[in-house]
């Protein structure tokens, strides 16, 4: 008996291959049933996300079972096996065990340390468990993987800091206002970047007003999509006085917001902190503004710099994390040896 992983991910396969082998939850159940009917593996589980498709199996005939599983993947994806066979990897224990621990912890993700994957692994496990496709080995293995993921997050800084511009902006805002619920954000500009930042702020409970300097209809459309309100450019000054956060992302080749203007807003705010995000190139906010007390100004480079620093910091935690994964793999293999005999482990 052996724990095996057959799959492909963002490291081995390009997007055009991954998207063909990405299965919705309904289809994963069909694949698991097909594997069961063909007696491929004693226990089996299919994990399918946008970045990976992996079959976890417990079997005693690795070569035959893996071969059959490959054929089934080809059949269900309607892609000729020759088109993706070289992108597939097969891992045998203990590598398969440490691989799952790494996957569940986000160490194998495109964005290292991301947390979305743990939810996806849990969903995949629940689906397989519900369909009685898992047994003692996979149940224990996956339960252990959830614990490993939790331990890694609490014992290391693998999840510390955000790695995208929009989420870094939200992190900074939360370090100023504690809670973004009911804070007012004014977004000047309707481009992709301002849309992302506004969306991230609104998802945390901020109330957003969208301003477009030339196309009011665009501001209205964006406000409808995001759940905010649209403001005409002529009225933005009045809104800005009430805003806690101001995001500028216009194509205007000039400074829209000046130091004296912000000084006036701060007087009305009685020194309450103001967060300014200037993601426009060229910049829309006079850099001298950041000299004012309680005004925090970040431009695109600042946000990108922090995101990059966080990414590097997360990567610096990898060694420690992999050490923890290695130890946990050893513990699991010891358990497997005790339960099923040393030859199995």
């Amino acid at each position: 008996m052996e724990i095996l992983v057959l799959g492909l991910n963002h490291k081995t396969a390009p997007l055009e291959v991954r998207e063909k082998l990405s299965f919705p939850s309904q289809k994963t159940e069909e694949i698991l049933r097909a594997l069961e009917e063909k007696r491929v593996f004693r226990e089996r589980l299919l994990l399918s996300t946008c970045n990976r498709t992996e079959i976890y199996g417990v079997g005693s005939r690795p070569h035959e079972e893996v071969g059959e599983a490959k054929r089934l993947l080809s059949e269900f994806s309607h892609v000729n096996l020759t088109e993706f066979e070289d992108k597939l990897y097969v891992l045998r224990q203990p590598d398969s065990v440490s691989h799952l621990f790494s996957v569940a912890s986000g160490l194998d993700s495109m964005v290292i340390g991301e947390t979305e994957i743990i939810g996806q692994v849990k969903d995949a496990y629940q689906a397989a468990h519900k369909n009685q496709q898992t047994g003692k080995v996979l149940n224990t293995l996956f339960q252990r993987s959830f614990k490993v993921a939790k331990n890694l997050r609490t014992q290391t800084d693998i999840g510390v800091g955000r790695v995208s511009v929009a989420s870094v902006a939200v992190d900074l805002a939360e370090k100023i206002f504690e809670n973004l619920k009911n804070t007012k954000a004014l977004v000047i500009g309707t481009g992709e970047m301002s849309n992302q930042v506004a969306r991230a702020m609104i998802s945390k409970g901020a109330l957003a007003s969208i301003v477009s300097s030339r196309h009011y209809d665009r501001a209205e459309k964006m406000a409808r999509e995001l759940g905010g309100s649209a403001v005409r450019f002529e009225d933005y000054e009045a809104e800005a006085r009430r805003a806690d956060m101001l995001i500028t992302a216009t194509l205007a080749p000039l400074v829209l917001i000046h130091k004296e203007q912000v000084r006036g807003w701060m007087r009305r705010r009685h020194g309450k902190p103001l967060f300014l995000i200037d993601i426009a190139v060229p910049r829309n906010i006079d850099p001298a503004v950041e000299k004012l007390d309680n005004v925090y100004l970040y431009n695109l480079d600042d946000l990108r710099g922090i995101a990059e620093k966080n990414r590097v910091y997360r990567e610096s935690q990898l060694e420690e994390c992999l050490g923890l994964v290695k130890r946990q793999t050893q513990y699991f293999m010891e358990w497997l040896g005790k339960e099923f005999g040393p030859s199995e482990a």
Binding site: K175, I176, N179, I306
Partner: peptide, 16 residues
């Protein structure tokens, strides 16, 4: 202000 978001930044509570 200085955009040095180090250990202290992550561990200290928000300004509010």
């Amino acid at each position: 202000k200085s955009k040095r978001v180090g250990n202290f930044f992550l561990k200290l509570p928000a300004l509010d």
